[in-house]
Design a protein around this nucleic acid. Structure first.
Lengths: 249, 249
DNA sequence: GGTTGCGGTTGATTCAGGTCAAGGAAGGGG
DNA sequence: CCCCTTCCTTGACCTGAATCAACCGCAACC
């Protein structure tokens, strides 16, 4: 379900070329005129404020979204259970791939701070992809990358300790920021401890404690939501370390 | 990496229409002549014996595979850690979607019993999809279905107890067998306790104990690898039940 | 027939992390 | 300014599941 069109901003022509995310976004590799056709289908819902809903669980699937600035989380509400955070989305990442080929959306997607997105109505994107092999390739690539990420996540959730989960989480974010041209050593966590806990399958208290421990060990500093990584190598070693018999060795 | 072509069986024309899985397979919804073009690209590697490798982790991605009979598991080997089972594949399911748009395969796929597959060389499939919107749609649908399954799995792995994981697992298998025309109440587990444990993020001893408990509670009977479900409703209730504060309530 | 090895079960023990509880810091609204 | 709420931290305690270990059944093989 998209935002009501009455609230949409007047269509400003988007120039992907000028976008700082161009090198990491969906239309990557499109020729000039292909890019123009692509830009023509982009819509811009009004900016979202912290806590606002972009996609409502169970709502009709109509569009993919690309984060332009800000960040969002996807969470899944299940029968009689607390919401569970399944994804965080940073600028340049595609929201809604899991809705393709289904009528309705699997989870809700909520802004964690002021957030701008580009909206891509899926039927128009599909039409366009029919003519642009490059775009088709990009779509497949996005989806399979997400499949691999989810699998990595499944491995993380089943075999690793709380420390290792947090280390992997921090390294993952660090890498994503680095790829987007930000510092991989120092960045802002837009999600709460509770979101992190839900995402990593830990109680929020555990998240808090592990972060404190990392700080004692001089691996990283966490001041509120400002994270500074001091010892990347140690974090990598921790994240990859095998434990026990069941999860590795 | 596919099996060496020298070992391939002579190309027998495949008739998807005649296949019992037709209604649940990739070419679903193709017109007659489209179906013929599809059948033309199908190859048949020789049948796999238990333990044989269909896809080797890190090998070049070339093909998707559809299970025709038998079953396989995907497992991921990580730096200094035990292999982790990430998927089980039953007849009609598509293997290899996570390799699309990457040079090499994310995990290894191994037969758990004598298994036949149809091989679809991806570049040929892509060419064909260019002409067949229906096929494109089916590919997207498969991938997004897998994305949703992985998310469900992530939720299962982070918030649920051992009993709930096993209950969900059994119900998931039951449903998959049902959809394929087999009994949802009584079926064969082609995977070991250790595979189940790895998949569900549990020690194999825990799997064994929980199964024994289910038996005591008359929820199901497990004789070796023959599983009989006695109380489907109770299992559903167990699987959906909220626990504690962190995972629900 | 004995041996070896794998898969599975069961028991005893341990511990990582969940739960409960209390309180502090920060931000927003009246 | 205070109040209220939300987020975070820290401590005490408890428990579910991992670990360690012994053992059984069975099939393959010599």
């Amino acid at each position: 379900m998209t935002l009501e069109s009455s609230r949409r901003q007047p269509a400003k022509a988007t120039r992907c070329e000028r976008c700082t995310l161009h090198a990491r976004c969906l239309p990557l590799g499109l020729e000039l005129d292909a890019l123009e056709s692509f830009e023509a289908i982009i819509q811009h819902p009004r900016p979202l404020k912290r806590g606002e809903v972009l996609v409502r669980q169970g709502g009709t699937f109509e569009s993919l979204f690309v984060v332009r600035s800000g960040s969002l989380k996807q969470s899944v509400a299940q029968e009689g259970q607390r919401d569970q955070v399944t994804h965080f989305y940073l600028p340049g990442e595609v929201v809604g791939l899991d809705g393709i080929g289904e009528d309705n959306c699997y989870g809700s997607v909520v802004a964690m701070e002021s957030t701008f997105v580009c909206e891509l109505p899926f039927h128009r994107l599909e039409d366009l992809a029919e003519q642009l092999p490059e775009l088709r390739g990009q779509l497949y690539r996005c989806m399979s990358r997400e499949l691999r990420n989810d699998q990595r996540m499944m491995c993380l959730l089943s075999g690793r300790t709380a420390d290792q989960r947090l280390a992997s989480f921090m390294l993952g974010l660090s890498e994503r920021f680095r790829l987007r041209g930000f510092s991989p050593y120092r960045f802002h966590l837009s999600m709460s401890r509770s979101d992190i806990g839900s995402y990593l399958g830990l109680a929020l208290e555990t998240v808090s404690r592990v972060l404190a421990r990392f700080q004692q060990q001089s691996l990283a500093t966490v001041a509120g939501r400002e994270l500074t990584i001091h010892d990347m190598e140690a974090l990598v070693a921790l994240a990859e370390e095998g434990v026990g018999r069941h999860s590795g060795g």
